[in-house]
């Protein structure tokens, strides 16, 4: 399997607050990896470090064999990593289609962008229905779909998802996770998904990492993690 992302002994901090204290993880091509952990464990910080918004003070971040730990965020997007940030961050005053077009901001291949737009619509038919509507008027679930669709428009090879279930009703969350699984399979897209709801994430992931106060406490296959006592106690019950 080809390694898409390598994260080796990474340290990162916000001023004096140490967020990551030697985190190592890997994501391979076409694989969904779950990142679990309690609030404040460093999950979002890990994603931010990958997408270049947080600079590691130590350690190595590699994407497809190239160091990216000193690369500008917009360059990282161009290289093929797309993030769906926590809280979705859609452009509320723009229409759905304008949001999606902005997703392809760094791309110059206009024709392919059109095709990708159609593909996003097939994954999320509701976005096609509402393409002319202001993003701010969409429901929470629809906005989450839009945020994922927008990230897909950048044609990434690694997709980072930060708590896609936040503030959504359970049925919607399941639907969204189903679609995420489907996208990964059909596109051969590597996905790193942060989730508090471990059972959902492990349902579509092949591997999982459990973070605790900035370090990896546990790493195993999804099946093993689901069976693991500590994970069950902490996150599944």
């Amino acid at each position: 399997m080809i390694r898409v992302l390598k994260f080796q002994d990474v340290y990162a901090s916000y001023g004096s607050v140490l967020a990551l204290q030697g985190v190592s993880l890997k994501v391979a091509e076409g694989e969904v990896v779950a990142l679990l952990g309690a609030n404040g464990a460093g999950k979002s910080s890990t994603l931010r470090t990958i997408s270049g918004l947080l600079r590691p003070s130590k350690g190595i971040v590699e994407f497809e064999g190239r160091r990216i730990d000193r690369t500008a965020p917009e360059r990282i997007v161009q290289m093929g990593i797309s993030q769906v940030p926590e809280g979705r961050q859609t452009f509320t005053e723009l229409t759905v289609i304008e949001n999606l077009r902005l997703g392809a901001y760094t791309r110059r291949d206009g024709r392919a962008v059109k095709q990708d737009l159609e593909r996003v619509y097939t994954y999320f038919p509701v976005l096609a229905e509402r393409r002319r509507q202001q993003a701010g008027l969409l429901s929470g679930g629809e906005q989450q779909m839009l945020a994922i669709g927008r990230a897909l428009m950048a044609k990434p090879r690694l997709l980072l998802l930060d708590e896609p279930s936040l503030g959504l009703a359970p049925i919607l969350v399941r639907e969204i996770f189903e679609i995420i699984g489907k996208i990964s399979k059909e596109e051969g897209l590597a996905i790193l998904v942060v989730e508090q709801d471990a059972s959902l994430a492990l349902g579509i992931a092949s591997h999982g990492y459990v973070l605790e106060t900035g370090t990896v406490a546990l790493h195993d296959t999804a099946d093993n993690l689901k069976k693991s006592d500590s994970v069950r106690r902490a996150y599944l019950e």
Binding site: L53, Q89, R101, L102, Y105
Partner: peptide, 23 residues
Amino acid sequence: SRIGRAFIALRDSEIGAQQMGVN
């Protein structure tokens, strides 16, 4: 233009814009 869309993006959500690759 692209520039105009970048402006709107960072107005509506700076984080979102950054995620889209807008400097």
